[in-house]
Amino acid sequence: MIVNFDLNAIGVFTGILAWSVIGFFAYQIYKKQMVKPKVWKILMAILVGLFSFSINWNMNETMFRIPILPLGVWILYFFCKGKAGRWQTYRTFAWLGFLMNFVFLFLTLVSIPIYHMIYSENEPSTYISTVENASIITIHPSAKNPTLKEEKLLKQLSSMSQEKIYSNQWYDDTYKNHELIDRKERFPYQLIGASPKWGSGLNTIIYIEDDGKGILISTPKKQLYFRSEESILERGE
C-alpha cells in the first residue's frame, strides 16, 4: 500500500488556523448567550451550517469554493422551528458555520502566495532537496548504465537554469531519421527517491536527460525543465 507521507505543511497550518477561528467565535457566542446548549449540539449546528450550495472556481489548478446559498442554515431552521426557542439557541451557531465558508475561502487565497513564496515553483531545490536515498533507474534501452553523483546534483541545483520545453520538437526528433533500431529516448533515466522540500506535499516524477545535464520534472499540475553546466551522472558501460 502506498502511504502518502507527503504532508502539505501550509495546508495543515491553514486548516488548524481556520478551526481555531471557529472555536474562538463559537466560544464568544456561547459566553454571550443566555441559554447554554450542550457542546456536541453546538458542534452539530456549526457543521450543518457549513453545508452550502457553492460555486467551484478553478484558478491555476486550485479549487476555490464560493458559498452562495446557506443550505445548512435552512435545514437547521426547518428542523428547529417546531419547538419554541430552539431556533433562537442555535441560529447564531448555524450562521457561524456558513460564514466559515468565507473564512476558508479567504485563507485559501492568502495561503497560495505564501506557499509559492516558501516553495518557489521555479527553483529546482523545491523538488529535489535531499538525495540520500536517491538513485537512477534506467527506463529506456538507449541509456547507458550510469550512476548518480549526489554531491554534484546538489551542487548544481542552485545554478540550474530553467529552459523551455519543446515537447513537440523533442517528440518529432526522436522519430525523424530514426528507425526502431537506433531510436533514442531523450530522457532515458528517472531519478527515484529524492525528497522535495519539507512540507511542500509535492509528488513528482523526475526524468534525466541522456547527457546527464537536464532534468524534466513532472508535477501533478505541470512540467518544468532545468539545465545544468555539468553532468550529474557518471558514465558506466
Binding site: 534506467t138 527506463i139 529506456h140 534501452p141 523551455k164 520545453i165 519543446y166 515537447s167 513537440n168 523533442w170 517528440y171 526522436t174 529516448e185 531523450r186 530522457f187 532515458p188 526524468y207 524534466l216 513532472s218 505541470k222 512540467q223
Partner: peptide, 20 residues
Amino acid sequence: DRGYHVTKGVENYNPRVQME
C-alpha cells in the same frame, strides 16, 4: 508510450518507458 501535449501554451513531454 512516448507522448506530448500542449494545453493552453503549457508544454508536456512524456518520455517512453520501456523496461525489459
